[in-house]
Design a protein around this nucleic acid. Structure first.
Length: 506
RNA sequence: CGGGGCGUAGCUUAGCUUGGUAGAGCGCCUGGUUUGGGACCAGGAGGUCGCAGGUUCAAAUCCUGUCGCCCCGACCA
């Protein structure tokens, strides 16, 4: 039977959103559940999340944070404490109103009217309010500050149009919540954590990102300042990969986080919050995947290496399996990026081609085949996911063991270089409204247009809104390293002090 | 919540216009031949056609209602 040219149909060029869905399926990452908008994350997908957690958690600890856990439920009245915040989240909250079920008399169940809660509970869309209320009890003196806490949790936002990993009703994330004595300290914390995210994106996800500040229109509800990292994926759209918010004293005032200062005066604390979510998995898929499926940056791959035993005759099975297990053990004793190499030996009784293609689609960085011919020669067949699927080399076991860590690092570097080239190729300075419109208008059926535009903005919400409505283009961020530069706004022609980053986004 | 589309086996679907009691491909199971890039042969399991009502001798097919899902918008990590 003839196979298609690529493992994934359609290709990225033909239909990028559909390609994405097919990769999620082919790589066995996740599936939609019976609950609309909620996903089942399967072992391979969850393994990626676990690797991301390890990486981030280490970086949080290294910057002085500790993990804790706060309740899933938030009293309704807490949500109302911060005006901007409630306005931003009210429309997408799941609310618990009852605590018992009873028979409906028709063989089904219903919430018992007698068990209605005095105060409804909101399933957390984010935890600023409940954590703020807790911190208020913990803080009395400047000596109680700073509080540097992170929690790994799930949150619920009742999204109208869900998409696996990118936008689901329930998602997994981490949310850091800190409280500080001074504004300067809180601002420094906000910037520090954005830096952590940018480093993590580069060193673990092989993603170059723009860092910067959101415009007022794109800011987190209740924040004074929202910083973000923005990545470009292969359809040249932007995706917000992480955010860090300076919350000023807004939430401290709303929650009553007050302390006696060194001058013996009552003062409100300065707070921050910062988070990344399982959306990062979707970002990695779209940034690095190809028409044969997922390609995983090694540091977040649940398995770095898969070993495929080749067993032409049943009587060779034991010796080939033994050789595979022996090599796996040696690989596991080798260190890559500070962790033992993760190896899987795929002993399932399937034909070689099927197994190979499964692992290609799953994006495992390195595939190793061991058959009887290799046993005789002491070699293996070796293939890397960042190269063509027919490109094989035949190193000896010793050569493989000596080079594997370097190879994995090379794969990471290759992915980062590719993603950087993609981003740089499609990030352009634009001066005129005509060019701006042209840049964001698709030229053919692919629907892929533009990329990132660095252009002058007059700083008004009116201009921002007009651009959003007419072109579906938003200000992704005001880049942190943008130099002061006078010029006319690309839309209104009014004077501008510096360029901002425009793009279509997820 | 507006506009469009669709519900038939685990998945993709044919059949519906013109009613006669369900077929295929993939997947799955068993046996055998295979296995260094998506194998083949033989046999087998699996469906109250989303749900409820109506018309009819007879409904996957026609009618009404209802539920769910998908796509496009508004919202968003």
């Amino acid at each position: 039977m003839s196979q298609p040219q690529t493992a994934i149909t359609p290709t990225r060029d033909a239909d990028f959103p559909e390609w994405y869905q097919q990769v999620v399926k082919a790589a066995d990452l996740a599936e939609n559940s019976d609950v609309r908008g909620c996903m089942v994350i399967k072992p391979w997908g969850y393994g990626i999340w676990e690797a991301m957690q390890r990486g981030l958690d280490g970086m949080f600890k290294a910057t002085g944070h500790k993990n804790a856990y706060f309740p899933l439920f938030i009293p309704l009245s807490y949500m109302a404490k911060e005006a901007q915040h409630v306005e931003g989240f009210a429309k997408e909250c799941a609310v618990v109103t009852h605590h018992r079920l009873e028979s409906d008399g028709k063989g089904g169940l219903r919430p018992a009217p007698s068990a209605e809660l005095a105060e409804p509970l909101v399933v957390r869309p984010t935890s600023e309010t409940i954590i703020g209320a807790t911190y208020a009890k913990w803080v009395q003196s400047y000596r109680d500050l700073p509080i540097l806490i992170n929690q790994w949790a799930n949150v619920v936002r009742w999204e109208m149009r869900p998409r696996v990993f990118l936008r689901t009703a329930e998602f997994l994330w981490q949310e850091g919540h800190t409280a500080h004595e001074t504004k300067a300290e809180a601002v420094a914390e906000t910037e520090q954590m954005l830096g952590v995210y940018a480093t993590f994106a580069r060193d673990w996800l092989a993603l170059p990102v723009f860092t910067g500040e959101k415009s007022a229109g794109e800011r987190f509800p209740g924040a004074e300042q929202t910083l973000c990292i923005e990545a470009m994926v292969q359809d040249r759209k932007a995706i917000q990969a992480g955010t860090s918010h300076f919350l000023g004293q807004n939430f401290a005032k709303a929650s009553g986080i007050e302390f006696l200062s060194r001058e013996n005066k009552k003062e409100f604390a300065w707070t921050t919050s910062w988070g990344v979510s399982t959306r990062l998995i979707g970002t990695v898929i779209m940034a690095h995947g190809d028409d044969d499926g997922l390609i995983l940056p090694p540091r977040i791959a649940p398995a770095h290496v898969v070993i495929l035993p080749i067993v032409p005759k049943p009587d060779m099975r034991d010796s080939v399996f033994a050789a595979c297990d022996a090599l796996a053990a040696q690989l596991r004793a080798t260190i890559f990026a500070g962790e033992p190499i993760r190896v899987e030996v795929d002993k399932r009784d399937l034909t070689g081609g099927v197994k190979s293609w499964e692992w290609i689609k799953k994006g495992v960085p390195v595939r190793v085949e061991i058959g009887p011919r290799d046993l005789e020669k002491g070699t293996v067949a070796f293939a890397r996911r960042d190269r063509g699927h027919k490109e094989k080399t035949f190193p000896t076991n010793a050569e493989l063991l000596a080079s594997i860590a370097t190879t994995l690092q090379e794969i990471h570097d290759t992915l980062l270089a590719r993603a950087t080239t993609l981003r740089d190729t499609h990030t352009v300075k634009i001066e005129t409204r005509e060019d701006f419109v042209k840049f964001f208008t698709a030229k053919d059926d692919s629907k892929i247009s533009g990329g990132f535009a660095l252009a002058h903005w007059d700083g008004t919400a009116e201009t921002e809104t007009e651009i959003k409505e007419q072109l579906k283009v938003t200000i992704r961020c005001i880049p942190a390293d943008a130099p002061a530069e006078d010029g006319p706004c690309v839309w209104s022609g009014k004077p501008s002090k510096r360029r901002v980053l425009f793009a279509k986004s997820y």
